[in-house]
Design a protein around this nucleic acid. Structure first.
Length: 427
RNA sequence: GUGGGUGUAGCUCAGUUGGUCAGAGCACCAGGUUGUGGCCCUGGGGGCCGUGGGUUCGAGUCCCAUCAUCCACCCCA
């Protein structure tokens, strides 16, 4: 192993440093609060699963499965994969624990790291984090709307602006198969004009040609028949009712007939939330219905719907839109000593402050008063409690307000209360 | 997997056609103020100039490779 590897993080991973942690606390807290508000309960599944779960769940013709998974054998020879997304694992857990036996629907949410191997760029990492929800057991289009509303409210709670909700229906296996043939029929005459990748997609997954960014393909596909027109009655009705519920909830959406999600399991409702300003990546979340997935993974036929959204991209968007995040790592009170050895007193006072709920600290480098004050300033402390020889002999402590610069003597035994009062009255 | 840009101090970056080129600002530490932070002044510690080869009397500078990083394609969150 090269030396540099010892202190270099693996490509496409990030250290989240103390100065950047506030945003994560905010996202995680918002996700949890909102989920519970909507009746979703948290589930934590392993970070790796049997590879087969993803092959079967996500679909083995998808890019994710074909070339983006971290797959390895453990010492017992098991084929394992670091999860590239959340849904397959949650469905597996749903089945393994017979969660349907407790009555449907089952509404779950998760928060955690996902892994996909690809060239890193703005908004794309090999280890990234998602917040997602999954709801099992109901075909009600109202549930589709609820899931979408939850996602949109997450962004709104954080103050994000200029989001676009793209909505489509990819139909059920029956009408999709029918549509697939229709689309192929339309594309056939243009086959040679399509870009190389799309020529390959023609047989395997012609719907994905809609996603192609080549202008030639876009032009051809622009006049292609759309999924929506070939939806069966059930799917078409479902789609209309989802839209009706969204309108009821006051959620704007853009009908996007070209929206095709990259995971194979979606049926009927598919959606994606787009935003500008975070580089070439514009999708900060997406999801849809997956009525066949549970059965596919060996369970009974239980419908499901969910979303997954990328927390790094949400953070990038917050930054791009100039939202500042609350600082949670400020020290409130710094205990400072000067003169004779008052360290024991300082330690005692510090303990009392902390017991009273103050974020408090002291110097441990035997630094000068000046250096200690500087440190207090750097820690953004509001108050410096200065223990000086002379005051201490009289049983007093100097309380210095580092923001206003005012300073007064307070009896040692009253100083914690004094700080509390200052804090309660807004310092 | 493909393409392009960039790697010099903890950070942001200067460094002229190869010849004091080891630099600045910020940050850090100390002093000015022998008991008081922020502003100011003075000083200090810190660099295998990403790594390995090559060209040359001489390479931070040119060439090759490699790694890392950023951006884009691809794909998606």
């Amino acid at each position: 192993m090269e030396d540099f590897m010892l202190i270099t993080r693996p490509r496409g991973t990030e250290d989240i440093l103390p100065e950047n942690i506030s945003g994560w606390y905010l996202l995680e807290a918002t996700a949890r609060e909102l989920s519970y508000l909507y009746g979703y309960r948290e589930i934590r599944t392993p970070i790796f699963e049997h590879t087969e779960i993803f092959n079967r769940g996500v679909g083995d013709t998808t890019d994710i499965v074909e070339k983006e998974m971290y797959t390895f054998k453990d010492r017992g020879g098991r084929e394992l994969t670091l999860r590239p997304e959340g849904t397959a694992s949650v469905v597996r857990a749903f089945l393994e624990h017979r969660m349907d036996a407790q009555g449907l629907p089952v509404k779950l949410f998760y928060l955690g790291p996902m892994f996909r191997y690809g060239r890193p760029q703005a908004g794309r990492l090999r280890q990234f984090h998602q917040f997602g929800v999954e709801a099992f057991g109901s075909m009600d289009p109202g549930l589709d709307a609820e899931v979408i509303a939850l996602a949109m409210n997450f962004y709104r709670a954080l103050g994000l602006e200029d989001l676009e909700l793209h909505l489509n229906s990819v139909g059920c296996p029956e009408c999709r198969a029918k549509y697939r043939e229709e689309l192929k029929g339309y594309l056939e005459p243009y086959l040679k004009e399509l870009c190389n990748t799309c020529q390959g997609r023609f047989e395997r997954n012609p719907l994905r040609i809609f996603d192609c960014k080549s202008s030639v393909c876009q032009e051809i596909v622009a006049k292609a028949p759309t999924v929506v027109l070939s939806l069966c009655e059930d799917c078409s009705d479902h789609f209309k009712r989802v839209q009706g519920y969204l309108e009821t909830l006051g959620i704007d959406f853009i009908l996007d007939e070209h929206l095709v999600r990259g995971l194979d399991y979606y049926t009927k409702t598919a959606f994606e939330i787009m935003v500008k300003g975070i580089g070439a990546q514009s999708s900060i979340g997406g999801g849809g219905r997956y009525d066949g997935l549970v059965e596919n993974l060996g369970g009974k036929s239980v419908p499901g719907i969910g979303f997954g959204l990328g927390l790094e991209r949400v953070l990038l968007t917050l930054q791009a839109q100039g939202k500042d995040l609350p600082q949670i790592n400020k020290i409130e009170v710094m205990v400072v000593t000067v003169g004779a050895d008052l360290n024991k007193e300082a330690v005692r006072l510090l303990a009392n402050l902390r017991a009273a709920g103050f974020k408090a600290d002291k110097d441990y480098l035997e630094r000068s008063l000046k250096a200690q004050m500087k440190y207090a300033n750097r820690c953004k402390a509001r108050i410096a409690l200065i223990l000086g020889e002379e005051e201490f002999k009289r049983g007093k402590v100097l309380v210095r307000d580092l923001e206003t610069g005012s300073q007064e003597e307070v009896p040692l035994e009253e100083v914690v209360d004094f700080c509390r009062q200052k804090k309660e009255s807004g310092w």
